[in-house]
Simulated assay, not measured.
Amino acid sequence: MGTLKTLIGLLAMPLPLAAVLLLAGLLAVGLGRQRLGLTLLAAAPALVVVLAWAPVADRLLAPLEQRHPPVHDARDHPEAQAIVVLGSGYSPHLALPVTAQLNDSGLVRLNEGIRLHRQRPALPLIVSGGARPDQAPIAEGFRRAAIALGVADDRLLPLTEPRDTAQEAYATREVLGEGATVLLVTSASHIHRAQAHFHRAGLNPIPAPTRHKAGHVRPATPGYWIPSATHLRKSERALYEYMGLLAAGLDH
């Protein structure tokens, strides 16, 4: 089921979807359905161009990112019992420093977790993420990177089994207990879905979003109006999250 969910999610992204439209268009033309085929062939590049345009990408992503404000100071939340950093990509096979083995989202999330931890050093810093086949758990990469960035090993609590956000929520409940209040650190586009999963698990998450991407390019600059891969990635991120909310039965 997990593999099928991942495959569906990948095929619904702009570039794979455009490729499907192109193949369907060519097939339609080959079967003599000229009008349908040409429509599909034109729709494929149009879809990519539109989603790679900042006015569209930002309007897709901003509603997700702006639902919760960032936490500027962890000391404003004395009720928090832990800081939880949700997992992202980790490539331990690379012969690079451990901080470079984390993907961009993971490194930003971890940095934010460490920033909050330095404001509340007595709190445990929980880092989460299971392993893909033949690979060390993401949480272990986060733990190693956090130590390299100055966090004491005895303040770190890696959760090495969870493979998705729902599992991360329940794993956190296992170690902290039901009803625990946590500062929940993840990408701003992901925070609403993550918070809902943590509520479902019986926890009290305080959203601490990071890695905001919408609105970084101002409308007055040429880059705002010219389609680019940067904006396409923002659209991909937004579409992925909307599909995740739909699959989990959560409010958009």
Rank of each mutant, 00 (worst) to 15 (best):
M243P: 00
P70L: 01
P162W: 10
H68N: 07
L96W: 13
L232W: 07
L64I: 07
E79G: 03
R59H: 09
A131C: 10
H117R: 00
H252M: 14
E65F: 11
T165A: 03
A44F: 00
I206T: 06
I8L: 14
I138H: 14
A28E: 04
L246R: 13
A95F: 11
E140D: 14
T3L: 13
I226K: 06
G32F: 08
H197P: 10
V20Q: 04
L21S: 01
L27G: 10
R163Q: 13
L64A: 05
L102F: 05
R237Y: 12
H231A: 15
L245N: 02
V151E: 11
N111C: 13
A171I: 00
D164E: 07
A145R: 05
P16A: 04
V50L: 12
R132D: 15
H216I: 12
G113H: 04
A43N: 02
A136Q: 14
L7V: 14
A148S: 14
V71F: 02
D58L: 07
T221S: 15
E161T: 15
G249Y: 02
G9P: 04
L27H: 01
V182Q: 03
A24K: 03
I83M: 07
G87D: 08
R132V: 15
I147G: 08
V108G: 09
R35L: 04
L176D: 08
L94H: 00
R143P: 06
A169Q: 12
L4F: 12
Y90M: 05
A19T: 06
